[in-house]
C-alpha cells in the first residue's frame, strides 16, 4: 500500500496554484489539501495522480470570516478550526456541533472543509451542511472564478460541478438568523466512521408555525440534497410529533437510497426516517 509516483508542487500563491492545475489537470494532476481522503485512495492505488499541487503553503486560502452575510471558508481551513465556533450566532454553534462527527480528532487537524466539499463523499457532513444551508462554492481557475450554488454542485458519488482545472477556493454559507433552530443526526456503526445516513434540519417559527424549513439528507443517496417533500410537510405546521413524523416519512419516501454490500436500501430508508424525526425533535427542544 505505497502510493504510485507523482511529481510534487508546492505553490505559494493562488495564481501559481491554478496555473499548475491548468497545466497538469489533463494528466490527472490534482490538488492536495488535507490529504485525509486523497492519500488513503493513493495508498490503495485507486488514485494515481501524476502531479500533486499541494495548497497547504498557498497564501490567502485560510480565510474564515463573515463577509456580506455569509461565512467564508477558505480552501485551507481545517475541520479542527470548527471545534470552537467559527462565528457568532447559530451558524457557528451548528458547525461546532457537526464537526465532532467528522472522522477523528487527528484527521480533523489536517482535513479541510473545502477538501471535503470538493471530494464530495456522499456521507460527508460538510457536503450535507453545504447542501442544506444553500452554500455557494467559489471555483477558481486560471481563467477566472465561478460561483456555483450547492444545488448544482453535488452531482453524484465523488463527482461535482468543479472542472478539473478549478480550485475550490472558498465555500460561503449564509449566516443563520438568530431565531433559526436546527437539529443534526447521524448514525454509524462505529465512532468516527462515515455515516450510513445523516440529516440536518433548520427552521424558524412565525406565530407558532414553521417557516423556511430546510431538511437536508446525506449518506443515504449518491449525493446530499434538500428534500423538498419533507420541507413541504413541515412548512406552516406546528412543531410536534405529527408534523415531524409526516416530514420524516416524506423524506424516507422521497429518497433513492444507495445499496452496498453492508447496507441495503430498505435499511437506509428506515434509518433516514428515524434520523429526520429525531433531528426535528432536537431542533424543537
Amino acid at each position: 500500500m505505497k502510493p504510485a509516483a507523482f511529481e510534487y508542487h508546492a505553490p505559494t500563491t493562488i495564481d501559481e496554484a491554478v496555473a499548475l492545475l491548468a497545466e497538469h489537470a489533463p494528466n490527472d494532476g490534482r490538488i492536495l489539501a488535507g490529504g485525509q481522503s486523497l492519500v488513503p485512495t493513493m495508498a490503495f492505488r485507486l488514485a494515481r495522480p501524476t502531479h500533486l499541487i499541494d495548497i497547504n503553503n498557498v497564501a490567502n486560502l485560510d480565510k474564515l470570516a463573515i463577509e456580506s452575510g455569509a461565512l467564508c471558508i477558505g480552501a485551507t481551513v481545517r475541520h479542527a478550526q470548527f471545534h470552537t465556533p467559527a462565528c457568532d450566532g447559530v451558524l457557528g454553534r451548528l458547525l461546532t456541533d457537526v464537526v465532532s462527527n467528522i472522522a477523528h480528532y487527528p484527521i480533523r487537524q489536517r482535513g479541510t472543509f473545502c477538501g471535503s466539499v470538493a471530494h464530495s463523499d456522499p456521507a460527508s457532513e460538510w457536503c450535507m451542511v453545504a447542501a442544506t444551508l444553500d452554500a455557494t462554492m467559489i471555483a477558481q481557475s486560471a481563467s477566472g472564478e465561478r460561483l456555483i450554488p450547492a444545488k448544482d454542485f453535488f452531482e453524484t458519488v465523488m463527482t461535482t460541478a468543479l472542472n478539473e482545472d478549478e480550485l475550490l477556493r472558498e465555500v460561503r454559507i449564509p449566516v443563520l438568523s438568530d431565531d433559526t433552530v436546527y437539529g443534526f443526526q447521524e448514525f454509524n456503526r462505529r465512532a468516527g466512521d462515515f455515516a450510513i445516513s445523516m440529516t440536518l434540519v433548520t427552521y424558524q417559527l412565525e406565530g407558532g408555525k414553521i417557516v423556511d424549513p430546510h431538511v437536508g439528507v446525506g449518506g443515504a443517496e449518491d449525493r446530499p440534497r434538500r428534500i423538498a417533500e419533507a420541507e413541504a410537510a413541515l412548512a406552516g405546521q406546528t412543531p410536534g410529533d405529527d408534523a415531524f413524523r409526516a416530514a420524516a416519512d416524506a423524506a424516507a419516501a422521497a429518497i433513492d437510497p444507495m445499496e452496498d454490500h453492508a447496507t441495503n436500501a430498505q435499511y437506509r430508508r428506515d434509518l433516514t426516517a428515524t434520523l429526520v424525526r429525531r433531528a426535528l425533535e432536537n431542533a424543537a427542544s
Binding site: F44, R189, R190, A191, G192, D193, F194, H261, A262
Partner: peptide, 16 residues
Amino acid sequence: PQAVTFADYLIPTLQE
C-alpha cells in the same frame, strides 16, 4: 472479499 480495509472490517473502538 468485501472487507479488505479497516473501513469495512469493523474493529471496535473504545466507544463500542
